[in-house]
């Protein structure tokens, strides 16, 4: 390879890289069908924060809207209620995804080939 003209060796290298990558992609898609199990220990920590951050963000948006519209507590209160809903929904989603991840390794489950994000 060292004696070749640099340009052809680059194009050759490019072609070989591309071939290797597509081969690798094939192998990966085959492998992810039998995905390895993922650590579930961080599950609880991941879930708890979803609720808090939804409340913080929607409460914050409400606070700024109140400042802007001059309707001190009302928009924030409404947004906090909405934030509760969003937080619950996000929590549920995360929990379901973690559940799916946990069962991914078991072949009898019907969600085997499912991507990690629902």
């Amino acid at each position: 390879m060292t004696e070749e003209d640099p340009k052809t060796s680059f194009t050759e290298l490019d072609a070989r890289l591309r071939a290797a990558r597509s081969r690798e992609d094939e192998r990966v898609t085959r492998e992810t069908a039998t995905a390895p199990e993922k650590p579930g220990a961080g599950a609880a920590m991941r879930i708890a924060v979803e609720m808090i951050s939804a409340l913080l963000v929607s409460g914050g948006i409400g606070w700024f809207l109140d400042d802007w519209l001059g309707t001190r507590p009302w928009v924030m209160l409404a947004m906090l209620l909405l934030g509760c809903g969003i937080g619950l929904r996000n929590t549920y989603r995360t929990a379901m995804r973690l559940n799916a991840d946990l069962h991914e390794g078991i072949p009898s489950q019907d969600n085997v080939a499912k991507p990690p994000e629902d």
């Binding site: 924060v49 979803e50 808090i52 951050s53 939804a54 913080l56 929607s58 948006i61 909405l82 929904r89």
Partner: peptide
């Protein structure tokens, strides 16, 4: 749509909060 937008905006907050709090 507002629900989806807000939950999209919660991402950086939850990401930051989780690491910091732990």
């Amino acid at each position: 749509i507002p629900i989806e937008v807000i939950s999209y905006l919660t991402r950086p907050v939850s990401l930051a909060l989780r690491l910091f709090a732990n």
